[in-house]
Amino acid sequence: MSVIEVSRVSRHYHVRSGLRWWRRQEIQAVRDVSFHIDAGETFGLLGPNGAGKTTIIKMLTTLLLPTAGSARVLGFDVASQPGEIRRRVGYVFGGDRGLYDRLSALDNLRYFAELYGVPARAQRQRIAYVLDLVRLAGRERERVEGYSRGMRQRLHIARGLLHDPPVLFLDEPSIGIDPVGARELRATVSALADAGKTIVLTTHYMYEADELCDRIAILRDGSIVAEGSPADLKSRVSEGEVVEAVVHSLPADAIARIQELAGVRSVTVRDLDRAQVLLVQTKPAAQLAAEIAGCLRGTAIQSLSVRAPTLEDAYVELVGGT
């Protein structure tokens, strides 16, 4: 049974920029997106900044209305039945905000327990349970302003779980957390998935999606460009090879020359501080390393290697190398 059904949803914004507040500009944040998520699934929305991930989450948590299309969460319509949905979903976003810094973690949780209508008698037990779940037990009386980012993020999750929602939305939960904190966070999320929660996770970290998600939708400029299990997505590029070259001052015409080579599927360039990384995805057995090196003649090549493609390569190819 589908817990979440999104059908042909679009959302645009009007923005006013800078001093010229009278000039309006329309931005298409989400374009004609459809997907469904089954009970107990962990579904990843993956894409670069501005791809529309957060907008989709906000529509599903009833904070934003779709400008076109319809979406249902647990059978309730996001536009017309927000109350039913709000009672049944948890919403957690990443970053520093969303907590009252001047209050203790316990007070924060008490407050949101009231807002979510957790019965007075069950509150104490429930708060203790979620604190334990996110490993903050024992520190709940400290003010949140003294918390590390990882602790704040776990407190956020505890807050989202207070009313024991069957569906949990996690909007870039690992943003700005150090690697250790991020690993702990992933452990928490996978424990929740094991407990049967349906989880919608947005991220722009490939390994996070790979590790946690049953299925992934990759977004670019507001549209889904690929959808499937991590294995599916990897298989799309697994038949070929990747030639990776680190070069200095890449001439403009080199890319065009490489693109014209027979057997090249895509070329992407990523800028580093003092060098550029050139990724060329090729068809199976194309053996293009030498020819690519030829196209780069006159350019300082720091390294050049041939390897099998990863999920990241699939992602880079789909979202266009940024």
Binding site: L63, R86, Y91, F93, D96, G98, L115, Y116, G117
Partner: peptide, 19 residues
């Protein structure tokens, strides 16, 4: 808004005007 809690107040089932 600055705390980032405004959206959470709205997303909660409690009546917003009461909050």
């Amino acid at each position: 808004r600055a705390f980032g809690t405004l959206e959470l107040l709205v997303a909660a089932p409690a009546p917003f005007s009461l909050s």
